[in-house]
Design a protein around this nucleic acid. Structure first.
Lengths: 229, 229
DNA sequence: CTTTTTAGTGTTTAAATAACACTATGTCAA
DNA sequence: TTGACATAGTGTTATTTAAACACTAAAAAG
């Protein structure tokens, strides 16, 4: 036991709620624990903080190690420090949430040594620790934030149709949106770049594709603009 | 050194950004450090986490010990864990923000052993550690949140005039509001209880006093209501 | 060439927001 | 007591934004 301190210290961990978007559902990436406590239970990817990395770096490292995900949108959610949240000892965890393009990452998650899988947020297994609380809070944050900041684009493929975009908002916000009003408003924002491309391999009229125009968005933010969809 | 662990551990701290409202300014409570590092510098009240208390409890305890404040509105802000934020060793801090009624608490803060004082947020001294970053983020959070949740009432005396209420929003949001529109909207919310009292000891027509009606507010939240001022 | 499936498109009504100025009531001092 | 001063209190109109609503267009498949 080579690390000794004058006062007792909690262990510090990071955990990540990784959201992905299916055609029908909002999904979360979970990992099946291969160690006690909660062996066999599904849990959020995460692990202990090292002293040579920031909290943010720790979250990204764990994500990479446990799921293969890199360069994703990742943001701090909140810190959870209840006394008995880990039965072994006192562990305080800094929870994060991440948004990934399911299409790009579907495979990698499953190739890791541990069993990893995507679950629909409205059909989750029992989770280890207080991870259900963390997940609930992450979902609330996503629902709140998606209307004010264009983070939702992180969930879509780079090129997408307006129908896909609308579907994303409907899935996240869990309510239907009016097609014409949605399209009017989305285009009026001025952060969608219309492409000279349409969907491929669909058995009906192909939709025009768009791309999120990050430059315009940044310019608008600078001018004190406020998003709202 | 009686506390030994297999892996090195960061120290965990909590810090609080305590906001108070003056007639003219939004203020923050700071404490002058009497120990190194940063001895003599102003800093946010805070201290180390103990293992028999939750993070929230630690923040409240430190607030009580260092400033005498109890039973205030207090909420987690974010966790700051940069490698070199404390020159002594690795310290990760969970920052909080609190809102207090300056009128009730003006005295207590000054009676503590350490020097404590209120500073206007737009006229702050150089702060210890990364506390300026924490403070900036806390202010942004307050400005963002005050429009969606009626937390601002925590800054006002229990009984207040509509002018005081408007002044509070103007100070926090740093922009003038239209008097008639403000009053219309504030009253329409249905969370203000009109009292049979008016201001005392003013050298002009006395304003009617109101109280925040928490019961109505809670009832409205239950009915899926959304605040916005 | 008909069926099927989704893309794409405007108008009208209702609601919310923003802009704007005067009268009322009390205190204080001459 | 009365006039000056300071802040309280009060509605209307114009503009913007949001909500409701249904048909035609295009492409693919058989």
């Amino acid at each position: 036991m080579p690390f000794a301190y004058e006062h007792p210290r909690a262990a510090m961990a990071v955990d990540c709620v990784v959201f992905g978007l299916d055609t029908a559902d909002l999904k979360v990436l979970l990992i099946q624990r291969d160690l006690d406590p909660f062996r066999g239970r599904w849990a959020l990817p995460g692990g202990f903080l090292r002293l040579d990395e920031t909290v943010d770096q720790a979250a990204r490292r764990e994500l990479r190690e446990e799921t293969g995900l890199e360069r994703v949108f990742l943001e701090q959610l909140a810190t959870f420090g209840d006394l008995d949240r880990d039965p072994r000892e006192r562990v305080v965890t800094v929870a994060h949430y991440a948004l990934v393009r399911l299409s790009d990452h579907r495979v990698q998650a499953a190739t890791d040594a541990r069993d990893a899988a995507w679950f629909a947020v409205d059909d989750l297994p029992t989770l280890a620790f207080d991870h259900d609380r963390i997940l609930t809070q992450a979902l609330a944050r996503l629902q709140g934030k998606v209307r004010w900041q264009p983070i939702g684009f992180e969930l879509l493929p780079e090129k997408f149709s307006l129908t896909q975009l609308q579907r994303m908002y409907e899935i996240i916000l869990e309510r239907p949106l009016d097609k014409r009003n949605f399209r009017k408003k989305a285009l009026a924002l001025g952060i969608l770049q219309e492409l000279d491309e349409v969907e491929q391999d669909v058995a009906h009229r192909a939709a025009r594709l768009y791309r999120f125009d990050e430059k315009s968005y940044r310019r608008m933010v600078k001018d004190g603009f406020h998003f709202e969809l």
